[in-house]
Structures are given as structure tokens and as C-alpha cells.
Amino acid sequence: MHELAIAESIMDIALKAKVDKHLDSIRAVGVRIGVMTDIVPEALEFGFDIIVKDTALDGCCLKIERIPVRGTCRSCRKFIEVEDFVFICPHCASRDLEITQGQELDIAFIEIDDDEDTPVRGMDSNGEENTG
């Protein structure tokens, strides 16, 4: 169950982003998870929901995009998508593949409420305009 540890790392990064970007609240965190990462999305969502309770991210959810294993065959130069971890080119049966996707474990975006009374302009100016 390393999903809990992964969920914690996601929470830490989101909490830091919340402070750094002066956000009131975060509704969702978007993550990209390659299928080669051995992470079970349901377990990750479950773990995340539990650990964010009673933190500044309470109620925030995960939006998970699964990334398939993809790349090109070095023999026939064709684009390939690897299914069921069989790393053999479906076009020419070569095993000499260049894999470019499927290892991702990235945060892609965060989602916030964008309502009228959150003046985006004032957000990173530290209220300097108001002091004059």
C-alpha cells in the first residue's frame, strides 16, 4: 500500500502550491499516472480522501489520468502502444523499442473556484496597490 505514501507526497505539493499561490481552497488535484508505475488509482484516491481530512485540503479530490505505455519501434520506426506489458513491436516483432510514455507520476494541475470575489489581479501583488 505505497499509495498512501504517494497520496501524502501529492498532498504536500498541493498544500505548498496553495500557500505559494495564495489560494483560498483547492477543489481538485489533477495527476498523470503511467500504467507502468504499479499504482492502483482507486487505492490512491481512497488514500488521498482519507489523509486530506482535517487539513487545508479537506474535500479536495484527485482527478487521475492514466497514461498508457507508448513509444516507437527502433527497427521499423512505427509508433507503438504496448499492451499488457508485452514489449514486442506489433508491426515487426522487434524488441528494440524506445518507450517514451507510461512511467509518469506527475501533478498536472490544480483546480480552484474562480468566483467574482477572488480578484486574480490582487493575488500576487501582496496588496501593494491598496497602501497608497
Binding site: 507526497s9 495527476v31 494541475f109 480552484i112
Partner: peptide
């Protein structure tokens, strides 16, 4: 309205 803010960061960037 919901607004998306891009954050490109590896989840395990601190470990890495």
C-alpha cells in the same frame, strides 16, 4: 466557475 492552474511537478520530485 472552476479554474485550472497548471502545475508541472513530479509527485516524487523530493525523493528523486
Amino acid at each position: 466557475m472552476v479554474k485550472k492552474i497548471p502545475v508541472e511537478k513530479k509527485v516524487l520530485s523530493e525523493n528523486d
